[in-house]
Amino acid sequence: MQNQNEKDPIIENLWHALGALKEIDAGQVNKTQLLGQPLCYGKDANDVAFVWPASERHKTHTPVNFEALNRCLPVQVRYGYVWTCLGTPSEEIFDIPEYVEPDRRNLNAASMGVHVSAPRAIENFLDMGHFPYVHTDILGVEPHTEVKDYDVTVSADACEILATRCLFYQPMASQASAGGADVEYVYRVPHPYCSILYKSSPLDAARQDVICIFIQPLDQEHIRAHMLLSVLDVDNPDISIRAFQQTIFGQDKPILENQFPKRLPLDPRVETPIRADKSAITYRRWLRQKGITYGVIPAAA
């Protein structure tokens, strides 16, 4: 059970993704953890998902009779993932309108474990300045290191952060282009532990590929990052699309695991932000205003 002082009612009442529905074997027990609490989950032959508190009786990959479970947690399947909530769901899962466009391919790129807090992982997802250093020759390359000014706003209802006009030099803007060019990104943060990235599509200049990260907080300093791709690519097989994203995330993982402290400090004096960190500064302030305490080091009052 969660330690009392680790309780964060806001986070507890939010929906969190546990895994991709497609990757679950029907009729079997799967084990995971959320906010320090061990959970079991599974699906029946009709793709109906179940989540329930772990118990000794249920062993991983053994058959389970879902009808016999006496206490299940709230469950939803959205964007191809099983979501649950440990408390009382306070709001709907955020909308990603592009997901239902008929010509998109939606797939789980990976679910990766990382020894870091959820907010550190989100902040890394929002960050462009590391592209030339961490994703060298893919998302960036030296000497093109400048982060140009961009816009960050918080929606009127304070539900969502939006970063727009984010331009960054990419050595291979697309498979079709011979040289580098600035690529435009838009970032949304509709949930303290989830973010959505829109990136100009190499195939259709008017549309964007969508990459989402849904962070499952195992505890305050361990996560699983679920990556949803919703792309317009028709040529490449799933395996190569996944491999690309896994390469990118595999480059971030050792950096994230070497961040200290692992929880995100919300006191603005603890780390040294620069103009390029506008979205991270907004994100930290937003977490602070929401009163989030899980996975962060709250600022002194």
């Binding site: 070497n258 961040q259 200290f260 402290p261 400090p265 780390e271």
Partner: peptide
């Protein structure tokens, strides 16, 4: 052992 910016270990 921390970069002042985001706390990444400088030993790497």
């Amino acid at each position: 052992n921390r970069c002042l910016h985001r706390g990444v270990r400088l030993s790497i």
